[in-house]
Amino acid sequence: MKLSKTISALFLSLVLLVGSLGQAHAKRLHAAIADWTGGIITCEVAVAILEKEYGYKIKQTVFPSGTGLWEAIAAGELDFACESWPSYAEADSVMLNEDLIYEGKVVGSYSGDGSVDLLGTAGIIGMSDYWIPKYAADELGIKTWKDLNKHKAKFATIETGSKGRLIGCPVAGWNCHDQKRLDLLGIDFQADELGTEAAAIAEAKAAYMRKEPFLLYLWSPHWFFGEYEMVGVQLPDHKVCDPDTFTEANNWKDCGTKGWPATGWAKDYTMNYGNPATFAKAEHADAKKFFENMSLQNIDQAKMLVEVDIKKRPVKEVVKEWLDNNPDKWKPWLK
């Protein structure tokens, strides 16, 4: 009986699988892979150091950022995620209960239910805006967002019809409220959500090559600014609104056009966050300490971004190279 023989073979190989296992278990953590390259790099820096210096075994899962990620961390399905931008996170005020400290000074404070642990600053300071290429700004004479409507026909595509097109925030979970912002500011543009950072950038790059005018949502640090000359449209300054009345049900309106999202974004002191139960454990005390000290600078991330996104090298390789060449920058985080 060939059949029973082979079945028993399958069975026996399983027994072998089980039997030959004797390795000691490493300390495990489960991290999320962000959906923009900068976030991926920041997290990879943390992961690589934890694995190298503290003997961790870290599983990384692709997960769309947004409230879903915060809840997954609160539920303990993931242990930590990196580089959250406070302007985009909607869950931070509900779930964090700690002060955000950047270089010894408090830059934000939260009083939520504490279901997510603020591990510390990531170091990166982000800025977001809408941008147009310099050639278009010069040619059309666009200085601020107020000039956009005059030239909206130049920004239109077949998909947007008579409106201009904003290559908008690519991922829904980032909660950019692009369309709402455009509407509240009275910019007659349509926000186009392309699904991924890469798709949005590819679209912008192609338009830049053709020297067409385009309006792009983008954040810094980003390699795009190093390659192409872009000019911000100077959205109105960010203003904090009263969170009790400033809700979606009120159509975000009580702040007038000055309030968010009818403004630009605030300066983002980004942070790492994790599951409180996990990081309360004694075995993860090292990791918790590490996250408190970690502070990756914009310039370092920008350098790695160029390697990853322009030279198309694997993230792991680039991060490893950076760690090998710059021990003076990250060794202090280990104390």
């Binding site: 769309p64 950022s65 947004g66 409230t67 879903g68 990620l69 915060w70 809840e71 997954a72 991922v171 829904a172 979970g173 909660n175 392309l194 699904g195 991924t196 798709a199």
Partner: peptide, 21 residues
């Protein structure tokens, strides 16, 4: 298809997932 720019119900599913809705 929302991964490469599809719209409609598929995008709703994705948004639901991302927003934990």
């Amino acid at each position: 298809t929302p991964l490469i720019g599809g719209k409609g119900l598929g995008l709703e599913v994705f948004n639901g997932l991302a927003r934990s809705d």
